[in-house]
């Protein structure tokens, strides 16, 4: 099995004190180099799933394999290196005083020697086209700039897979298009968690719909989005005037 596969089987999770389970038998399999959209309405368990892929919520039931590694405490550091999580609010992800320090944070934790850090940071920022921002303060960046730097912070750890939680939230149309182009140009396996259906169509050949904590549909994005009944049954909707068949 290749290193970049994400294999999740029968994942179940209930938040402490909550009555209903958020994840209820979720199973997902993503092959190397695939770009997959995970679609679902608010509250369908998407973010909970993202936190699982990085070992930020501990397994209650089910299995997660990242490449050849099972999700165990001993494997956590390597799994977190392999799976780069880009969170919904970039202000949560950019917590240092400068873009340079922020992008250095991951590789420094991985033990990259200080002398090599600059090169790693510059390569990562270059990949997302954010080199000019290197000495800026994260707080003063625009939404699109923050998103790109947030992606650079995980690229600097040379991950095998990227998991992006609602990457288009708060972006203007230009920022959104630039992000789509950026993702299309990255070689990593990508799981894009979103309810922005046109963005899913633009970036991901394959889509899954999550509802009630499990996968209820899995197929080529174009086919999934053309099924109006399926979308309606899962509180998903294409924007007004958007016609998949016309594309």
């Amino acid at each position: 099995m290749s290193c970049t596969t994400i294999q999740v089987a029968d994942l179940r999770f209930t938040y402490p004190g909550a009555h209903d389970s958020v994840l209820d038998g979720l199973s997902v399999s993503i092959g190397e180099g695939e770009r997959v959209a995970l679609l679902g309405p608010n509250g369908s368990g998407k973010t909970t799933f993202v936190l699982h892929l990085n070992g930020l919520l501990s397994l209650q039931s089910g299995t997660i394999r990242i490449g050849d590694l099972d999700m165990t405490d001993a494997n956590l550091p390597e799994i977190r290196r392999r799976v780069g999580a880009v969170f919904q609010d970039a202000d949560d992800q950019l917590f240092m005083q400068s873009v340079r320090d922020d992008v250095s944070f991951g590789p420094a934790n991985l033990g990259v020697p200080r002398g090599d850090l600059d090169g790693v940071v510059e390569r990562a920022l270059d990949q997302v086209g954010a080199m000019p921002l290197i000495d800026r303060t994260p707080h003063h960046l625009s939404g699109g700039e923050k998103r790109r730097v947030a992606i650079a912070t995980v690229l600097a750890m040379e991950p095998h897979a990227l998991v992006l939680d609602e990457p288009t939230s708060g972006l203007d149309p230009v920022g959104r298009r630039e992000l789509a182009e950026l993702l299309a140009g990255l070689p990593q396996t990508q799981l894009v968690v979103t309810h922005d259906l046109p963005f899913a169509l633009q970036t991901c050949p394959r889509s899954m719909i999550v509802s009630g904590g499990k996968v209820v549909a899995d197929g080529p994005t174009r086919e999934v989005l053309a099924d109006a009944e399926l979308l309606a049954a899962n509180r998903l909707e294409l924007p007004y005037g958007f016609d998949v068949s016309a594309l």
Binding site: L51, N54, L56, P77, R80, R81, G84, A85, F87, D92, Q93, F95, F105, G106, N109, L110, T153, V154, M157
Partner: peptide, 9 residues
């Protein structure tokens, strides 16, 4: 969580 996911110990 964001720090942990980038290897913070």
């Amino acid at each position: 969580q964001a720090m942990l996911s980038r290897g913070f110990t």
